[in-house]
Nucleic acid binder design. Sequence first.
DNA 1: TTTTAATGAGTAAGTCCTCACTCATTAGTA
DNA 2: TACTAATGAGTGAGGACTTACTCATTAAAA
Lengths: 214, 214
Amino acid sequence: MVHNDIQTLFAESLNELKLTEKQKAVLNASLKLFSEKGFDRTSTSDIAQLAGVSEGTVYKQFKTKEGILTAIIGPFIQQVMPKAATEFTNEVTHTSYPSFGEFLHAIIKDRMVFALNSMPQLRIILHEVITNQAIATGFSHLFENLIVGPLGQTLKHYQEEKQLVDWPLDRIIRYVATTVMGYVLPAALLHGSVDIEHASREATEFLLKGLKPA
Amino acid sequence: MVHNDIQTLFAESLNELKLTEKQKAVLNASLKLFSEKGFDRTSTSDIAQLAGVSEGTVYKQFKTKEGILTAIIGPFIQQVMPKAATEFTNEVTHTSYPSFGEFLHAIIKDRMVFALNSMPQLRIILHEVITNQAIATGFSHLFENLIVGPLGQTLKHYQEEKQLVDWPLDRIIRYVATTVMGYVLPAALLHGSVDIEHASREATEFLLKGLKPA
DNA sequence: TTTTAATGAGTAAGTCCTCACTCATTAGTA
DNA sequence: TACTAATGAGTGAGGACTTACTCATTAAAA
């Protein structure tokens, strides 16, 4: 079983930080409001009301409003995203998928499920990444780590077996990532739904052609 | 010569609306601040200061702060973007490019130049599209129009000539758009630069393989 | 009782927006 | 031409309101 349940992972990372019930209530309320209205259009009194606590309690748990934001997307970026990525590629490698096509389909489906399950967090990050330079650079580091990590090793293996075109890995990952985004982003912004089964098969078909060895 | 100079087109649309010098100053200041700090983190006094006018003047020209926003991205979405798209495909069609590869390369290069020249506007739209449902749906209509417009006709022609895979046009356009985005977005968010010559050739190579007829 | 947790009215800073007023430019008059 | 009247773009102090954040008071727990 692949670890693509982001909510479970998110909850785990919260437990690691030993959060109280009230803190979790504040965090969950903030997650909902930030992703719906954006950080700036969400007031701390809104958060307190939805969390069912007083505004004073909010500020007992978190020093500033910005602190709530980093408490949400910080662990998500630093732990959950790379964790989900590496745990995936540790289980699903060329040993379990001798065919690159099946591997590609598995990883695309996994990433689609991941993205659609963590829409609120991704919407917040999408909002912040434009104005917050630190978050943007954090993302680029994440992609660099993907290349030198288990995913990169697996892709190299398929290249050696002549199942995958001999291009630099960052180029290959770029195409896979953007193709998946092409299916997920519109649905996320228009609040639509995605037929993951159909979308992942379409995306795989296209990428397999585009990434076939010469 | 292809019409990809977005600043010229933007200026034209401003002239059509017969804006005064002060109005342009307010609009330019707002464009800069909105794209750098975001709409909510930009105050009207900030705008007035950068534009070199009083806050009262700002509100003499535009009824509300929101009005400034729509004055910037409204014409951009409704006029400039489709205009730039259709004017391109009116000049650059299968008649001037018998090879689909050359056509694809031309259109990719054009879209990259367009995107990189209109970064400020696109950053604002990216910011708004998350919270503003109307803008998001406006974009989806724009894509629908692309399919039934001259671009769709041109693509159909290449399909009949067996130079392009026989997939639905929206699927093909999705892949082209996301692949271009894959090169432009990271540069935009990290404030980096793009070697358009190199990037457009890479993107074309990949898409040509992926969109080759069976 | 003593200590800790929770409250929400209060605060100061900041927001968008208004409006009574100025004054350079233009139009009208003698 | 010389003087007056009319105009409206431009001003900026201030109003009405919201915000993030605090702290004296109250409630709960040990």
